[in-house]
Design a protein around this nucleic acid. Sequence first.
DNA 1: GCGATACTAAGTGAAATAGCTAACTATAGC
DNA 2: GCTATAGTTAGCTATTTCACTTAGTATCGC
Lengths: 114, 114
Amino acid sequence: MEQFSHSLDSIFQALADPTRRAVLERLGHGPASVGELAMPFDMALPSFMKHITMLESCGLIRTRKSGRVRHCAIDPQRLALVDGWLADQRTLWNGRTDRLERLLTQPKDKDPSA
Amino acid sequence: MEQFSHSLDSIFQALADPTRRAVLERLGHGPASVGELAMPFDMALPSFMKHITMLESCGLIRTRKSGRVRHCAIDPQRLALVDGWLADQRTLWNGRTDRLERLLTQPKDKDPSA
DNA sequence: GCGATACTAAGTGAAATAGCTAACTATAGC
DNA sequence: GCTATAGTTAGCTATTTCACTTAGTATCGC
């Protein structure tokens, strides 16, 4: 649990920027080169590259260079971490309101782990 | 869609810090005062207060002061925004994954994109 | 009223973030 | 080999973040 914390730091940090979220959304439709990804943004390429680097260093995307082109693709597993954290939180605060009901109706507690 | 983006910025930013995530987790078990929340952290109170302020300003928690004590409580609805964004993303790339699987299992649809 | 408690305000500083330009490397195409 | 393209490196700046200390305000309890 502790080792996730550090990852979550950088992942949430990465997600905190609209440019980077937009890149992820774009990559959700399929892989793309850095140049293609950069096009919609009114930003110098080196600036944009920092976002790509950041996304890769926290594991949200994977990239590989073929020739002079760097191809980027999303890494869904990484976002599962966020999903997991969020699910935990939801369980906590929903559990607080639902606990009584649950105890009365379902004595068994199920844990959907990854 | 645009107005969500700004909110997501500050929410993800807030979640990017382990102290703030820990506060949320603690608050998931129920409301608490600033002092109670601060106790586990080896941090000066003014520093800690900034985290509280940040969590409140992005809407993840609500606080009210009664007497000299400020009580904090979580605001689950706010995290639903994150949940929504994440769900959208999942839909995107799961859709893609499903499509790929379909291509692999059903050679009827010809699309040599790999 | 007076001291202790629970924050709050103000000011400092190191480090990270997010952008820029200019110059460079490596590949593709002719 | 020369030129254009795609990305990279280096170095600069402004802003934000995250912590600190010191001092102040506003209750609470006696």
